[in-house]
């Protein structure tokens, strides 16, 4: 499979990364090389093979419903670049 310039832009959009117009072609070329390389997987017969999500064999453990954390707004906000009145602050969200 190979990707076009528009797909590169779509991926950048979904990734929230800026990609300058003059870099699109180079990125596209690099991606196509990588995708061509991973295409070797096509030669593997995976009919009737279940995907392996995790090597973990243990089932999910369940936690007791207890309040064990919280009341630490200061620590939660300590690293925030901008905060006001106890809130995280960001530029206006446009709907």
């Amino acid at each position: 499979m190979s990707i076009d310039a528009n797909t590169v832009k779509k991926i950048a959009f979904l990734s929230h990364l800026k990609i300058e117009d003059d870099k699109v072609a180079a990125t596209q070329e690099e991606f196509n090389k990588i995708l061509q390389w991973v295409d070797q997987l096509k030669e593997v017969d995976t009919d009737n093979v279940e995907p392996l999500v995790s090597v973990n064999n243990e089932h999910l453990r369940l936690r007791q419903d207890e309040v064990t954390e919280g009341n630490q707004a200061e620590a939660v906000l300590a690293n925030a670049p901008v905060k006001e009145y106890g809130y995280f602050v960001v530029p206006k969200v446009v709907e």
Partner: peptide, 15 residues
Amino acid sequence: GASTHYGSEVNENVS
């Protein structure tokens, strides 16, 4: 393990 309590102080129930 943070509380689900409704109406707490801002960012108080945050792990």
